[in-house]
Design a protein around this nucleic acid. Structure first.
Length: 480
RNA sequence: CGGGGUGUAGCGCAGUUUGGUAGCGCAUCUGGUUUGGGACCAGAGGGCCGCGGGUUCAAAUCCUGCCACCCCGACCA
């Protein structure tokens, strides 16, 4: 048995042996993605895309419930527009792709493939906005963006990725700030309530903030290998762009004003987070609320009279709101199917065989704990619904425990670099707030300040890195 | 961009040292027996040996140029 178990997972490199290889094995063998002919660009296959669709469905509803509307802006942005906000161009110029020809004709002005859409959206907002009566503007778009990355990994960093970007305008700074924080909160709830990924929220340091932002807020998750993943950002852009793009309106007093501006986004990177937070050496472990298949039903000895009929009948009794797949393929053995669907991370497996039918029961297996037990066919729907919720809570709790175990306090720089080397994770420390100090941390350890968390802890009055007067408590980690 | 490595069937590889009919495992297809933790038997299909040039009677193998990809260090949701 023990020997067998080892054989089952031989296709996937154990994560303790080689975490990056484990990740690659999992995403390829479970059919989430494939590499494309263009370096750095990935194909998202149906099983992977279904996860994204479930994320979209949840988030889109949250956006609309808070008054946002969807729209679509063009893929290509004229160079002149990109250049309008100085910090912004500087930040993105190194990684934009350019379109220089239309057919055989060289273009008068080259066009960049959007790395993000602030510039083109602001240029349109400038055209549209006239009066305070139109505010706030609460728009979002679902699209893809291109950033020419040097090193890429499917979902975590690809040259093109799918995301949503919200772009809003407001009358006051306070309103814009409230919007920025509201969207971050929705992101946090998405991570925790939908994906079962616990996150730390807070503000980015000036070094790490978005190019052109007044303030950037982030949610950070910790992966199994102790590296942090920025899972979503929300920016208060102040009036940087609205001034640069001359977006003006007449306010309540008849004065000309620039509105306050926010933008916020999450991407398909979230899927990478799901994999690296919940996955194990058997493969994916999908949180039930986004799993494309929540329940897989596997008939045993399906050639025998009545087995398949019973399976179809049970599926019907479970209801249409549960995503169920029956694997009645005949070319694989039940054992093979068990392993396959476990690898694919399906939260619940229901086995139905002649013996079960005789006893009015099914055998239920849960992916997160690998527990298997017989359950009555009566009230199966309730059993399954409760179990899906239990699995969600269990995954969230487990991920929290994992994160806390990989979080630690440091006493000084030496202690910090030693710990960061020995066991990567979230280091909690006091920081003076200076750029030199932050640069130094990165230069010495390749770790970065992930965020200044909203939930501050008082760990003393001296910077743990340079000894000067401390300003904030921060989370520091190596990041994806 | 700097350092190291690899290109042979869909995937993973052997063969290259010493030139001589292009192989193995998995996957795929057909037929049959199976079915409660990756079943078994029999058969079949599948190759520009990364690309170009050269040496040779003969090149996956030797020489040469190029290309691609992977890993490790500086930029990034």
């Amino acid at each position: 048995m023990a020997k067998k178990e080892k054989e089952f997972v031989q296709d996937i490199t154990p994560m303790e042996v080689d975490f990056p290889q484990w990740y690659t094995d999992v995403i390829l063998k479970t059919d989430l993605v494939d590499y494309s002919p263009v370096r750095g660009f990935m194909v998202i296959k149906p099983y992977g895309y279904a996860i994204w669709e479930n994320i979209q469905k949840y988030m889109d509803k949250r956006f609309k419930d808070t008054g946002h509307k969807n729209c679509y802006f063009p893929l290509l942005i004229p160079e002149s527009l990109l250049k309008k906000e100085a910090e912004h161009v500087e930040g993105f110029a190194p990684e934009v792709a350019w379109v220089t020809h239309g057919g055989k004709e060289e273009l008068q002005e080259r066009l960049c493939v959007r790395p993000t859409s602030e510039t083109i959206i602001c240029s349109m907002y400038a055209k549209w906005l006239k009066s305070y009566r139109e505010l706030p503007y609460l728009y979002n778009q679902w699209c893809s963006v291109v950033r020419w990355e040097k090193t890429t990994r499917p979902f975590l960093r690809t040259s093109e990725f799918l995301w949503q970007e919200g772009h809003t305008l407001h009358e006051t700074y306070e309103e814009a700030q409230a919007e920025t924080l509201q969207m971050l909160q929705i992101y946090k709830e998405t991570a925790e309530d939908l994906l079962a990924i616990p996150v730390v929220t807070g503000r980015k340091s000036d070094k790490e903030k978005f190019a052109g932002a007044y303030a950037t807020y982030t949610m950070e998750a910790l992966m199994h290998d102790g590296k942090a993943l920025q899972a979503g950002t929300s920016h208060n852009l102040g009036q940087h762009f609205t001034q640069a793009f001359e977006i003006t309106y007449l306010d309540r007093n008849g004065d000309m004003q620039n509105p306050y501006h926010t933008s916020w986004g999450v991407s398909t990177r979230l899927i990478g987070g799901i994999i690296m937070v919940h996955g194990d050496n058997r493969g994916l472990v999908l949180p039930p609320r986004v799993a494309p298949v929540q329940v897989v039903m596997i008939p045993i000895a399906q050639h025998k009279e009545g087995v398949l009929d019973k399976v179809y009948e049970l599926k019907k009794s479970l209801g249409e709101d549960i995503r169920i797949e029956i694997d009645d393929s005949t070319n694989y053995s039940p054992g093979w199917k068990f392993n396959e669907w476990e690898m694919k991370g399906v939260p619940i497996r229901i086995e139905v065989g002649p013996r079960d039918i005789e006893n009015n029961q099914v055998v239920i297996f849960r992916r997160d704990t690998l527990e298997k037990q017989p359950v009555s066919m009566d009230g199966l729907r309730e059993t399954v619904l409760n179990l899906l919720d239990d699995i969600h809570e269990g995954l969230l709790e487990k991920a929290r425990t994992m994160r806390d175990e990989k979080s630690y306090y440091v006493s000084d720089f030496k202690d910090f670099s030693k710990k960061m080397e020995a066991s990567p994770g979230f280091a909690k420390a006091m920081w003076c707030g200076s750029r030199e100090c932050e640069d130094n941390i990165k230069a010495q350890t390749s770790a970065t300040i992930r965020c200044i968390p909203f939930e501050q802890e008082d760990l003393g009055d001296k910077c743990h890195f340079c000894g000067k007067e401390a300003k904030h408590m921060v989370y520091v980690a190596k990041a994806y």
